[in-house]
C-alpha cells in the first residue's frame, strides 16, 4: 500500500482558535453575558477567519460549544464541504441530517428561519434538551427595532436584527409559549453577538 500522501488530497482546514483554552474562555464569557442580558451586543474578542459561508462570531461560538457530545445540524446555506471539514476537524462534532436530531443548529440563511418547530424543544421533565440555534444574521443594533422583555432585562430593551423574517416576533411567540420547553437562539452578526433565551418576549413596535 502506498503510504505517501496523495498529491490531490483536500487542502488542510483553515485554522481554528489561536489559543483554544483562553480564547474559548473569553468567547464563552461573552456568550454567557449575551444570554443573561438579552438585547446586549457583544463584540468578538478573538480573530478568526472561518471557511465561507461561516461568519466569524458564529464560527467562534461553534468552536466554543461544540464537541463530540453535540449532534450538529447545518442548514442548506451552510452545507459546504469546507464548513463540514472545518467543524469536524476543530470541534469533532457529529453532523446530523435532520434538525430534529440536533442539539445545536448552525443556520446560515436567517431569512428561511420561519419555523422553529423543526428543532427539539426538550421533554417536559428535561426542557434543557431543547436545541440551541446559532443563527448568522447580517447585522445587530441595540436601541432600535423590536422590544424585548423578560429575565435578564431591566424593564425593557430594544434590538434590531437584520436578516430574520419580518414575522419573526410571531414565530418567536410560539416558541416562548412553550416555556420552559423551547429553543434558544444566538444571533451572530459577523463581529457582533446577541442572544434570545426562550424566556424572553419579543414584540414589534
Amino acid at each position: 500500500m502506498d503510504t505517501r500522501h496523495a498529491t490531490n488530497a483536500a487542502p488542510a482546514p483553515a485554522p481554528g482558535l489561536a489559543d483554544p483554552v483562553f480564547d474559548a474562555q473569553r468567547l464563552f464569557r461573552a456568550a454567557l453575558e449575551a444570554l443573561s442580558r438579552p438585547g446586549t451586543i457583544q463584540a468578538l474578542p478573538v480573530d478568526l477567519t472561518p471557511p465561507a459561508p461561516l461568519t466569524p462570531w458564529a464560527a467562534a461560538l461553534a468552536l466554543t460549544l461544540l464537541d463530540l457530545e453535540t449532534p450538529v445540524w447545518l442548514d442548506p446555506a451552510l452545507e459546504a464541504q469546507a464548513v463540514r471539514d472545518w467543524l469536524r476537524f476543530h470541534a469533532g462534532c457529529p453532523l446530523v441530517a435532520t434538525p430534529d436530531e440536533a442539539a445545536f443548529a448552525l443556520v446560515g440563511d436567517a431569512s428561511a428561519l420561519d419555523d422553529l418547530s423543526a428543532f427539539p424543544i426538550g421533554a417536559a421533565e428535561y426542557p434543557d434538551q431543547g436545541a440551541t440555534l446559532i443563527v448568522q444574521v447580517a447585522g445587530l443594533r441595540a436601541d432600535a427595532g423590536w422590544t424585548l422583555s423578560g429575565p435578564g432585562i431591566k424593564g425593557r430593551t430594544r434590538l434590531a436584527v437584520a436578516g430574520l423574517p419580518a414575522a419573526f416576533p410571531a414565530i418567536w411567540a410560539e416558541n416562548a409559549a412553550l416555556h420552559p420547553q423551547g429553543v434558544d437562539i444566538f444571533l451572530c452578526a459577523p463581529h457582533a453577538l446577541a442572544a434570545l433565551p426562550r424566556s424572553v418576549t419579543v414584540r414589534e413596535d
Binding site: L32, L35, D67, T70, D184, P197, S199
Partner: peptide, 19 residues
C-alpha cells in the same frame, strides 16, 4: 479539561435560559 468545561458551559447556558 477543556471537554469538561465545554460540557459545563453548555449546561450553564441552558440554566440561564430557563431560570
Amino acid at each position: 479539561d477543556e471537554q469538561t468545561k465545554r460540557m459545563i458551559r453548555r449546561a450553564l447556558l441552558k440554566a440561564v435560559a430557563i431560570p
